[in-house]
Amino acid sequence: MILELQNITLNFSGSKDSFRILDGLNFSVEKGRITALIGGNGSGKTTLFNIISGFQEGFTGNILFNGKPLHALSPAKIAQRGIGRLFQGKPLFQDLNLLDNMKLASGDSSGESPFSYLINRKKIDAGEQEKERQAIDILNSLFGADNKYTKMLHNMGSEFSYGEQRLISLARLFMGNYSLLLLDEPTAGVNPVYINTIRQIILRMIADGKTTVLLIEHNMPFVRDIADRCAYLADGRIQHQGTPCEVLDNREVKNSYLGIL
């Protein structure tokens, strides 16, 4: 198990009363696999990602990553430990070009202090070139040798379509040294022509046998196709888990989530 969530509870305080979004949730994620997390809108899937990646305070329970507690680490520290994230619905950095969007995701952030650049220019330039080479390698290997993105390295993030920005956001996760990737609705709002590419990218993520993917998805055919495991979140807990077929064909899941009687 790469990730273990134990007895996670979180209350949100609304304007009048507080409500319990996660209620003693237990969940373990198997290493080297693709696990899909499904559940209705507002069931707390993104909130759970926020808890894992350090953005959500005020919960109780334990999180073990590779057997070690992640308690009270900042989001940046958690990312440095090896947990990467694709946010729900977020585009690229709009004011940075494609190449800088990739470089900023590099696992090597030395050279980003304001003084190092002035003091040790040569070394940093070399590091920058190395990152550029790495970025081009990634783009070529994901999108083919003659892809449009390698030719558009200096176009601003804002110049790409939303679907393209999501593809690049996934691609840039290869720049870091992540062992667990949290992908929040990678196919949502994306032109269907890109969905097969997204599928290929996610499969590549686990191809090294060491990386694990935890995926939030509403696209059920996609989940059946790509996921090894599936977990259904409702009423603050994981209600069912198993293979995608087992979970998606479960009567209760069909009734309450898929709306099929």
Binding site: S53, F55, S74, P75, A76, K77, A79, Q80, G84, R85, F87, K90, F93, Q94, D95, L96, D100, L104, A105, G107, S109, E112, G176
Partner: peptide, 16 residues
Amino acid sequence: TAIRSDELSVSALGRN
């Protein structure tokens, strides 16, 4: 520059 447009993503990429 990245912080200006999206601070959350910057921290999720391991920069504080």
